[in-house]
Design a protein around this nucleic acid. Structure first.
Lengths: 235, 235
DNA sequence: AAGTGGTCTAGACCACTTC
DNA sequence: AAGTGGTCTAGACCACTTT
């Protein structure tokens, strides 16, 4: 139950930084001073400073000392997929198609290479909230398996074929005027601007292996993001 | 120039995890095994494992060993403000106003408390791309200073009065039908759905100290976000 | 030369898990 | 009891910065 010393020290220092006692550009006491102050070894002090460094609060400068960093307000953590799983998906289509120019470029398909598409509609409370398209390259010799994946979410569906840790995703969020088939599925009277989230899944070698677009109506809700050191689960 | 041993070890292990040699749920060799393998001390091995833990790749389990974690696909890092600074802002209004219900709730204003508003228009290449509103509580006795801050960006403007590290921001991204004054400023013919980013700045005690809304047109561009271990600057 | 952080060692004792 | 990770010590030597 008793708190380890190194967490006690990092906690005290974090508090001092957040409260403004140490401000950005300020220097913390040296490792030796802290070791003397808390009557402990330099190793333990270093461990507590490592904690704060990994949280992005401080940066050591060889030969000088530990500096307090200015906060980065432009970096947000976005949690995506939370409200995606509330509601019910209805499949509209699972097919092999000749890809559009956009899809072909995003997936870097070869000429005449086909793509597999799944299209789904998200319903919640009797309302059509979102429309969802996923595209993956079609390759001969990897047959029916592809048709089973359409129940899985991005990028879970790739875990069988790729090392999971090697996948990464690029996301864009914007407004687009939805194409007709999307408007029809969502039962919109006229082409309307919708929030569109695209996701491009890449494997370790940056090879694109999946591309998805989600069209979200006003009823769908909002995406949320957070920034700030203060929200760390520690403290 | 020679790479420290602990980084060498963590690099090798990271490579093994990303390549799929160790998969999620797998256990890494024990600290003692690694120490023997690399002919080094347990302390150095621990330091290399700490690196991977702070990257979210592994999790130690007391008495058992180090487990490889499954990737979290729902956590994205969003860089906001990059395309906000390209272009030119034109101030439309700086004023003390009676707040709307929305503003009053977000800022948790007292009854009859006023708010300061700044409204701006973002132009780029002759096009109106975005409209920007910021609200902060008005307090008597903190007078004209407030009017000077309107050149600063959220949340920089608060750094004088609050400990910078104590601020945090909650963001929502969604589609809203823009109110009339926004449509007028953006020269839209009819009320149109726009991408709306709201930001609520809170101080350390969770007290709201600023609220901003940005309405973005289709021309503005998209927000981008990334996920995946693979994009870490290391490796 | 003196102070700072960066790396590393060879131990120690504890708490948790497995057998 | 044996193996695992968790914490901590008291040194050592190096590289960088300041005086």
């Amino acid at each position: 139950m008793t708190e380890p010393l190194y967490l006690h020290i990092s906690g005290r220092l974090r508090q001092s930084i957040i409260s403004g006692e140490y401000r950005p550009e300020d220097m913390l006491p040296s490792e030796n001073e802290l070791a003397a102050l808390y009557n402990t070894s330099r190793v333990t002090v270093r461990k507590s400073l490592d904690v704060l460094e990994s949280e992005g609060l401080i940066k050591p400068w060889h030969g000088k000392g530990y500096f307090v960093l200015p906060p980065k307000y432009t970096t947000f953590t976005l949690l995506f997929g939370d409200n995606m799983n509330e509601g019910r998906f209805r499949f509209q289509e699972v097919n092999i198609i000749r890809p559009s120019k956009e899809i072909s470029e995003k997936l870097q398909l070869k000429k005449h290479q086909m793509a597999i598409v799944t299209r789904r509609l998200l319903e919640r409370g009797g309302k059509n909230l979102a429309y969802d398209e996923k595209f993956i390259p079609y390759e001969r010799g990897v047959p029916s398996i592809e048709f089973e994946i359409h129940f899985a979410e991005f990028p879970d569906m790739f875990e069988e074929r790729f090392a999971p840790m090697s996948l990464h995703t690029e996301m864009t969020i914007g407004v687009e005027t939805a194409p007709e088939h999307v408007c029809a599925a969502l039962r919109l009277n006229a082409p309307a601007p919708l929030m569109v989230v695209t996701r491009l899944i890449r494997a370790k070698d940056d090879q694109p292996i999946g591309y998805g677009k989600q069209y979200m109506t006003e009823d769908f809700g909002k995406l949320t993001a957070k920034s700030g050191y203060y929200i760390h689960d520690k403290l």
